[in-house]
Design a binder for these strands. Structure first.
Length: 260
DNA sequence: TTCCGGCCGG
DNA sequence: CCGGCGGGAA
């Protein structure tokens, strides 16, 4: 049934529209630099963001929130600074590993790293110990401005509860759905049309291959992916919580699959 | 106690 | 597929 997927994609666009109307731009992932985004992406793995902020504040106060800083700080010292973020031994080791990778592969240059094609850089990141799909995509999108959608536990939970995709849907499947759903929105933004209320007009367009994407389209897509993930996290944190969800006040309540 | 903006190794 | 990693806040 080919109509199934199209319906799901339209639903995703409806969610984006409703959430953006309710909350507006999220200014998601506030950070001073790209490297801060990368550090945050590591530290926030299965960890509350408030704890990540404490660790980041420690690093910033110690003037270690940079490639050079992580490079020179002794491992044991790094562990102490990021302790509030939990898993501090793993995470300290993995931050060191990332800088080592950056040094060897890109001579310590983030601009050189992010100049790499999206797909190839993604594979390189995934090969690193401590970087899985979500961390890789977070780095690509929020630090590198590459057009990839970030799937997290909130995304999966919302899709499952709304019966759009099963709970055990793969990361790739979820990401594909959002890619296809939001590509038309990116085009809409690129065409300098208003986003809100215009989402119904362009439907059914498959995602362009990266090579066929203009700079304007790419930038627009990055913005849309950025916003959508931020909005979803807002839903997950405040309403679609693991236990005791508060569907009554959720901006997405009208889309619930007719139950309680 | 539960949960958090995951990921790795057995 | 499962256990471990871990501190902080609700």
């Amino acid at each position: 049934m080919p109509g199934q997927n199209e319906e799901k994609e339209r639903q995703i666009r409806n969610y984006y529209d409703a959430l953006y109307r309710a909350w507006g731009a999220q200014h998601w992932w506030p950070a001073q630099s790209r490297f801060e985004v990368i550090v945050g992406a590591y530290l926030t793995q299965n960890t509350a963001w408030t704890n990540v902020e404490k660790a980041m504040a420690n690093l910033r106060a110690a003037r270690l929130l940079s490639v050079a800083g992580i490079r020179r700080v002794p491992l044991a010292r790094l562990q102490r600074f990021i302790r509030p973020a939990g898993y501090f031994r793993q995470k300290a080791q993995r931050l060191k590993l990332f800088v080592r990778f950056l040094d060897r592969r890109y001579r310590g240059s983030l601009p050189r790293m992010f100049a790499q094609p999206t797909g190839e850089l993604r594979e390189e990141l995934l090969a690193l110990n401590g970087i899985g799909p979500e961390t890789a995509d977070s780095i690509l999108l929020y630090a590198g401005n590459h057009p990839v959608f970030v799937v997290d536990a909130y995304t999966r939970r919302i899709l499952a509860r709304h019966e759009i995709l099963p709970e055990d849907a793969s990361y790739g499947q979820i990401r594909e759905l959002f890619d296809r759903a939001l590509a038309p929105v990116g085009e809409s933004v690129a065409g300098s049309e208003r986003v809100s209320g215009q989402l119904e007009k362009k439907v059914g367009g498959a995602a362009h291959p990266p090579s066929a994407m203009s700079t304007v389209q790419r930038t627009a897509l990055v913005q849309v992916y950025n916003e959508m993930h931020g909005l979803i996290v807002g839903v997950g944190k405040n309403y679609c919580r693991k236990s005791q969800a508060r569907c009554d006040d959720c901006p997405l309540r009208e889309f619930l699959p007719s139950r309680m």
